[in-house]
Structures are given as C-alpha cells and as structure tokens.
Amino acid sequence: MRQSRLIMGMPVQLEIVDPSMQENYEEIFDYFISIDDRFSTYKDESEISKINRGELAKEDYSPDMLEVFALSEETKNATNGYFDIHTPDGSIDPSGLVKGWAIQKAAEKLHVHGFTNFYIDIGGDIQTSGKDATGKDWSIGIRNPLNVANQEEVVKVIYPRGKGIATSGSYLRGTHIYNPHVPEKPDAFLSLTVIGPNVYEADRFATAAFAMGQDGVQFIAELGARGFDGFEAYAIDEQGMALYTPGFDAYTFV
C-alpha cells in the first residue's frame, strides 16, 4: 500500500509490496525526517545551517555530514566543477545530492529487512526495486514540463528495472540549480531526467548535467568513457523537443 508524507517540503511516497508492517514505513519516514532536520537549509537549527553560520567546529560535524561533504567533493571532480555545493553567496547547500543519497540509504535499509519489491519517491527522484503490486515492472513517467496545470501529465514512460531516476529542472519553487561557471546563463532545458545505476547516482549527475545547459545530455552520454557506466538522459526544452542519449530507448519498453 502506497503511503505519502510531506517531508522536506515535498511529497515523499513509499510503497513496500512485500508483506510488511506499519513500523517498516515509519522507520523510513522517520529517517527522511532526520535527514531533513540535519540537511535542510530552510531550518535554522539544522546542522547545515549551523555550519553556514560558523557555529559548528569541523570536529563536531556528524558522520552523515562528513560523508555528504566527501561525496560532494568527489562529484565536483567528476563533473568538471559543475556540481558544487558552494553557492554564489558563500554558503553550502548540498541539496543537489542529499535527496538521492537519502533515498539510496533508505533503499538499503529496506533491503536489510529483506524487502525486495518497493518504491521510494521524494519529489520525483525515484528508486524502485523488484516488481509492483501487480507483479509488473515499475513504470515511471516523465512529467510534461510544458503543462503547468497538470502535474501528472507524462510524455515518456520509463521502466527502470531497479535503476534510479532523477529529474532536475527549473521547478515551480524557483530555479535552485545554477551554472557555477556562468551563473547568469539561461537554462537550456526545462527538465533533464537521468537514469542511473541507483537514485543517488542519477540525482547527482542530473543536477550537474542540468547546470551544464546544452552540453548536459552529451555529458551524460559520455559518462561511460569517464568510468561511470549505466547512465542515460532525456532532456526537454521549451519547444517541447527532447534531446536524449542513444541508450535511453532501451528503458521505454517492457
């Protein structure tokens, strides 16, 4: 049974297909709440806000924070600096990676409990495992970014088969991704969806690829040559045209 909560200011959806108890759901929701409490730049008392105010010494950073910082640095190097948690105003905002990272952690918790068929979705970043409640492959739609009125209208259906999916774009909440090299450069796409080995990988590379503008899809296409295998991208521009990687089509049918 699918359950939803509003965490991190966005809908969090969890569905465990295998026989489960309510406490299994609560554990995952509680985990996301704890991540939000730690990493939200909107919360004054979060660890990241304290760090940004200079109120926390480095030796007092939590293991989670140190891990996210290390992963952010690694991602920055892997994306020619396009992924950067250091914002133009000098603060640190790891939200371009934390969501996918947290979903991936939650998926690992479910696997430890022995669950193999589930669905985790935070604001459109999705990790699926196994099959859905009808025994079919999970199917994920790419939202039509041109239709502002209908958030459920999809223009592409993906069967991720255990891979992770994340979409970056100019969200209704306002552009939260900027090009660190040319901050004022306009976005080339309305949305850029990445299929990756897991949702963490998809999320961090979707964030970086979107910041790259026109070159983002090509960057994803060439990730294999950089030693990152299993990535595909589908980007939609303002004219309703999609630019996508050659291997993407393999995920569009059962």
């Binding site: 959806q13 999705i126 999970w138 199917s139 739609g141 939202r143 970014p145 999809v154 949305s191």
Partner: peptide
C-alpha cells in the same frame, strides 16, 4: 502519453 504509471519524475516550469 496516456499510460498508467507507478510514479512521475519531472520538473514543471
């Protein structure tokens, strides 16, 4: 698409 999907990923702007 008029497909019935498990979930939706995307931006809207």
């Amino acid at each position: 698409q008029s497909a019935n999907v498990s979930g939706v990923s995307g931006a809207s702007a």
